[in-house]
Design a protein around this nucleic acid. Structure first.
Length: 419
DNA sequence: TCTGGGGTCCTAGGACCC
DNA sequence: TCTGGGGTCCTAGGACCC
């Protein structure tokens, strides 16, 4: 039988904010998404006040003010840095991990004795808390899907933050309490369809015929059924290189002028290219999109995208900005007011495995060196010390971020001071 | 006034090949 | 008069995740 654990940071963004601001402890705290749009993290105290996950911030303004809830814009530079510290700590203890999201990692435990898995989990939790200050929960199970469920129980019902579903002789009883749409991999649409078929709990899904599931849904859901039965179908993924890299953001206000949209897409393209070079890859093509605000029902709606393939894989910011602007020009229509645009770099390949093209002169080396210089300067002297002219300097489209905390761990001038 | 951003995987259908 | 079938590859779109 396989053995997995899922480590999950408790209320991660809130825990990050509390690290350098202990006055927030035991108080209700919220963290917002980009553009101060949605509520994406809640302290336990805020959960108790009935604030739901993912809700639009402006719908809850009154409750927030009435209860004096502390609110922060998201500070991804800071959270990303804290995440890396947590993951580094974890991989120092156990190297076989899959970093699944900014605050979660799957741990491969096959090489460990089943009898002391809880002790290992205790050790991991204590060390991570000691080294980073971030509280975590750990669920242990024979499959990834069950480890998600075990983690949920650890977080909600176990004082020590650990739950091993292997231990449990009452596994069926436990999963009979899990609503079908709370299972990892099943969401609103499939949940609704399953319920219509009379399947409403994880236990009922586990006991459903797999052929029936395969015919009515897909192999994805069939695998989930096997995983609930304890048969591992979703393996741990140890690779850290991404297959696509994107950058997109909503504008701070609706934008009509194509010049401003070109400026925005140039910035997103530059950012995506930075990430691309950081993982030492090149891209074979790009996807660019532009859309109006779907929540403005009284505005005319429009959305369009376009793709472009390159003759040779590239990570040249200049070329990618030019290409992205051309695609924007192609899909832009001056009759609409726009809300968001973005770029995704597709079909990534390792930069050291590029085959040169027969008919095209291969002068990427010069570009590579230029990009290295650009990255080094921006890394040592701050983001956007050097940038392309088309990225502009006015940023009328820029995202709202009115309540952002300091960059405690990533900017010298924001280092916490002790007097 | 104000509703995120960044990913993964799977499938169906068309183009193309012999 | 009768005009194929089987395979692969690519892409767009849709589902899901945090």
């Amino acid at each position: 039988m396989s053995k997995f654990a899922l480590l999950d940071c408790n209320n991660f963004y809130v825990s990050c904010e509390r690290l350098f601001n202990p006055s927030l402890n035991n108080k209700p705290v919220l963290v917002l998404s980009n553009n101060d749009g949605c509520i994406v993290a809640r302290s336990n105290e805020a959960k108790k006040l009935g604030i739901p996950m993912g809700a639009p911030y402006h719908h809850y303004r009154q409750v927030i003010e009435k209860n004096n809830i502390a609110v922060f814009s998201s500070n991804y530079q800071f959270y990303g840095d804290m995440s890396q510290r947590v993951m580094d700590s974890l991989s120092m203890i156990i190297p076989n991990i899959e970093i699944y999201s900014i605050d979660e990692a799957f741990i491969h435990l096959d090489n460990f004795n089943s009898n002391n898995l809880t002790d290992i989990a205790k050790h991991i939790r204590n060390k991570i808390f000691m080294w980073t200050g971030i509280p975590t929960s750990i669920g242990i199970a024979p499959t990834k899907t069950l480890s998600k469920i075990a983690n949920r129980i650890a977080k909600k019902h176990r004082a020590n933050g650990i739950f091993d579903i292997h231990d449990s002789s009452t596994k069926d009883k436990i999963i009979s309490d899990i609503p079908v749409e709370d299972i990892w991999g099943i969401s609103y649409r499939w949940g609704r369809k399953l319920r219509a078929l009379g399947i409403s709990s994880a236990l009922e899904l586990k006991n459903t015929d797999t052929k029936f599931i395969r015919n009515n849904f897909s192999i994805v859901l069939e695998r989930i059924v096997y995983e609930l039965r304890g048969l591992s179908c979703i393996d741990i993924n140890l690779s850290t290189t991404k297959k696509s890299i994107g950058s997109s953001k909503s504008f701070g206000k609706l934008i009509i002028e194509i010049e401003k949209i070109e400026e925005a897409i140039s910035n997103y393209a530059a950012r995506a290219c930075e990430k691309l070079r950081t993982q030492k890859s090149k891209t074979n093509g790009i996807y660019v999109f532009l859309k109006t605000n779907p929540f403005r029902k009284n505005e005319p709606q429009y959305q369009k995208s376009a793709t472009l393939g390159f003759d040779l894989p590239t990570s040249d910011t200049g070329l990618i900005i030019r290409s992205a602007k051309n695609l924007i020009k192609r899909i832009y229509d001056n009759r609409y007011r726009y809300h968001k645009c973005g770029i995704i770099l597709l079909d990534l390949v390792p930069e050291n495995q590029i085959q040169s093209h027969l008919f095209i002169k291969y002068d990427e080396y010069r570009k590579d060196n230029l990009m290295k210089v650009l990255d080094n300067i921006n890394k040592s002297m701050g983001r956007k010390t050097i940038f392309h002219a088309s990225q502009g300097i006015k940023y009328e489209w820029e995202t709202r971020r009115n309540k952002v905390s300091q960059h405690y761990t990533t900017k010298w001038e924001d280092l916490p001071k002790i007097y």
